[in-house]
Computed example of a mutant assay.
Amino acid sequence: MMKTNWQKRSVIAVILFTLLTGGIYGIYWIYTTNRDLNDLTGDYRLKPGWTLFFGLITCGLYMFYWWYRINDLVMAAQKRALRPYRSDNKLLFIVLRIFGLAVINMAILQSDLNDVYDHLNQGVTNMKTQGDDEWSDY
């Protein structure tokens, strides 16, 4: 079932919670972001549970692949929300991950998602009010 109201997350809060919890919030964020993007795009190749499992058993090496692939889902979400592509951040995500700066990746990704969610939520609101005013069953 498709969600109709997407919840934004504060970019600053994502960074702070991740740093303050020693990365535990980052694990939760990866799971929920992956799940939301799967629902939004209909592309379930990156499963949230498997992502965490493979990240754990490979001591984080799988996350290089995840950062590379998650950008495809973001771009598909931008297309669905009729938002212009900002840029393909695959290479940037990999380089930042190499230098241990995945929290910056999280900020970039969350910012892009917030833009998509704003547009989708606005579109849902506009569709509801437009449909109520213009159409009648009788």
Rank of each mutant, 00 (worst) to 15 (best):
F54N: 08
F54M: 13
F54P: 03
G55T: 11
I57P: 00
I57H: 04
T58Y: 10
T58E: 09
C59G: 12
G60N: 09
G60C: 05
G60V: 09
G60P: 08
G60A: 06
G60Q: 04
Y62I: 02
Y62E: 05
M63C: 11
F64H: 06
Y65D: 01
Y65S: 03
Y65P: 06
W66F: 14
Y68R: 07
R69L: 12
I70R: 00
N71P: 09
N71W: 03
N71E: 15
N71A: 11
D72T: 08
D72C: 03
D72S: 04
V74K: 01
M75T: 07
A76I: 07
A76R: 12
A77P: 01
Q78P: 05
Q78F: 07
K79I: 10
R80A: 13
R80K: 15
A81L: 04
S87Q: 15
S87M: 14
D88H: 10
N89W: 12
K90L: 03
L91Q: 10
L91A: 14
L91D: 08
L91C: 11
L92P: 07
L92D: 12
I94N: 00
I94Y: 05
I94Q: 05
V95R: 05
I98C: 11
F99W: 03
G100T: 01
G100Y: 03
G100L: 06
L101T: 10
A102D: 15
V103Y: 04
V103F: 11
I104A: 08
I104F: 02
I104E: 00
M106T: 07
M106E: 11
M106D: 11
A107D: 06
I108F: 09
L109Y: 08
L109F: 03
Q110L: 05
Q110M: 03
D112H: 10
D112M: 11
L113A: 00
L113W: 06
N114P: 00
D115E: 15
D115V: 12
D115R: 15
V116L: 03
Y117S: 09
Y117L: 00
D118E: 13
D118I: 07
D118F: 10
D118R: 09
D118Q: 09
D118L: 09
H119S: 14
H119I: 14
H119F: 12
H119M: 14
H119Y: 14
Q122Y: 15
Q122K: 13
G123L: 05
V124L: 13
